[in-house]
């Protein structure tokens, strides 16, 4: 069985994570779409920390016999990997969009200056 102290620390830490994320959303410093994975991480860790029997059972399934909290760390690590992978996809998309924007600005600037030159010559 998980030592009680670890369960308490787990509950407090995951609750804190959820609260921080909610506060960031409230202050508009974090978009909901990027907060959902963090909230899911917090929720899963909260449940596994508070519901000690469940953690024990899952540890049994996974063959973790000696130390059930190891499952807690494994789950936390897994979720962090998911969040990071998600961010890599977001970053890639932003990179593409950023290049596209730069290209459009370059093309538009050239068109604008050409149009301005043309209108200046017709005026003269």
């Amino acid at each position: 069985m998980t030592p009680l102290r670890i369960s308490i620390v787990g509950v407090v830490a995951s609750a804190l994570l959820i609260l921080i994320v909610l506060e960031l959303i409230r202050g508009r410093r974090l978009k909901e779409r990027y907060a959902l994975l963090w909230l899911a991480t917090g929720a899963v860790l909260l449940v596994l920390s508070a519901w000690r029997e469940a953690l024990n059972t899952i540890a049994g399934w996974l063959g973790v016999t000696g130390y059930p909290p190891a499952v807690l760390f494994a789950v936390a690590t897994l979720f962090i990997l998911l969040v990071l992978l998600h961010y890599s996809t977001v970053l890639s998309k932003l990179t593409d969009e950023n290049v596209e924007l730069a290209q459009r600005i370059a093309l538009l600037e050239e068109r604008v200056s050409r149009a301005l030159r043309a209108s200046n010559t017709t005026k003269l």
Binding site: N98, V99, A102, Q103, I105, A106, L107, E109, E110
Partner: peptide, 9 residues
């Protein structure tokens, strides 16, 4: 004709 990119792409 010069196309100026606003940052290095």
């Amino acid at each position: 004709i010069v196309l100026r990119l606003p940052h290095n792409v």
